[in-house]
Amino acid sequence: MPRSLKKGPYVVESLYLKVVRMNESGSRQPIKTWARRCTIVPEFVGHTFKVHNGRMFMDVFVTEDMVGHKLGEFSPTRFFRGHTNKKEGIKARR
């Protein structure tokens, strides 16, 4: 079920304000953030975010199509590296 319209999109306030400030000054530096749950709003378009995935910061360049999604959707937390080959064993993993 989607979020109630009354509440509007969930946007992390501090991050939003930072983007607005950057838009005013025209600066386009990557923004490091842990706010994976923050909805992407139109103001974010054109910025690069470094979204934490639990281990490192993934570069996410926001395009218009991404509006309405969450930042975390673009920074995968798991990487499937294939199943282990029985002969090579578990060592071959990672």
């Binding site: 395009t63 199509d65 991404m66 999604h69 975390g72 959707e73 673009f74 995968p76």
Partner: peptide
Amino acid sequence: DIRCYRGE
């Protein structure tokens, strides 16, 4: 195209 989780 936007390479989000669902797309993946």
